[in-house]
Simulated assay, not measured.
Amino acid sequence: MKNIFSTDDSKEFVDRINQLKNDSQPIWGKMSVDQMLAHCNVMYEMVYDDVHPKPNSFLRFVLKSFIKNKVVNAIPYPRNIRTAPQFIISNNRDFELEKSRLIDYINRTQQLGEKEFEGKESLSFGKLTSKEWNNMFAKHLDHHLSQFNV
């Protein structure tokens, strides 16, 4: 598992993102490259921007009890896995804008470092360790960058 808090590993993710072109095609799945970038940005929006509502207590219980471990463990996601509704991007997005936003989020996360994320509250899963945050960020990025063969 790559470490999103590591300068080298974060740079590797950014380098992979920079290989994408606005006409890059997925190996699997239905998202266009601009939608995929916007989809990846949602996780960071949930951390840095107040644009997504916090799930109600029942949904949060369900997420913590049944989904959390699959998201924060080190096991890669399978292809064509279902996604949560707030992560579904159905309209076209500005490729360059979404790419720039994702790179900025990755750099910001790396610069803040592990200490900032140790015990930090997740919108959906409650408090997470920095390792769980890393796994969530890194495996999600790797999954979708691999989807676009970069």
Results as ranks from 00 to 15, higher is better:
residue 104 D to S: 15
residue 108 R to H: 10
residue 90 S to Q: 11
residue 67 I to L: 04
residue 73 N to V: 03
residue 78 P to H: 08
residue 33 V to M: 09
residue 96 E to K: 03
residue 46 M to Q: 04
residue 70 K to E: 04
residue 32 S to D: 06
residue 6 S to D: 05
residue 8 D to H: 12
residue 95 F to L: 06
residue 76 P to M: 11
residue 22 N to R: 12
residue 77 Y to N: 10
residue 32 S to L: 13
residue 110 Q to A: 10
residue 65 S to G: 05
residue 55 P to M: 00
residue 75 I to N: 11
residue 127 K to V: 04
residue 67 I to R: 02
residue 76 P to S: 09
residue 141 L to F: 04
residue 47 V to E: 00
residue 120 K to Q: 10
residue 40 C to M: 14
residue 118 E to H: 06
residue 90 S to D: 09
residue 147 Q to W: 07
residue 41 N to T: 03
residue 69 N to Q: 05
residue 115 K to S: 15
residue 117 F to P: 10
residue 64 K to L: 11
residue 56 N to Q: 04
residue 83 T to E: 12
residue 71 V to A: 14
residue 124 S to D: 15
residue 35 Q to C: 07
residue 95 F to I: 01
residue 79 R to F: 04
residue 76 P to K: 11
residue 103 I to Q: 06
residue 21 K to L: 15
residue 17 I to H: 01
residue 7 T to V: 10
residue 65 S to P: 01
residue 27 I to K: 05
residue 71 V to I: 15
residue 60 R to G: 12
residue 129 T to R: 08
residue 122 S to V: 10
residue 35 Q to F: 06
residue 120 K to I: 14
residue 36 M to T: 01
residue 20 L to R: 04
residue 12 E to A: 13
residue 28 W to V: 08
residue 106 I to C: 11
residue 102 L to T: 01
residue 110 Q to I: 00
residue 4 I to N: 07
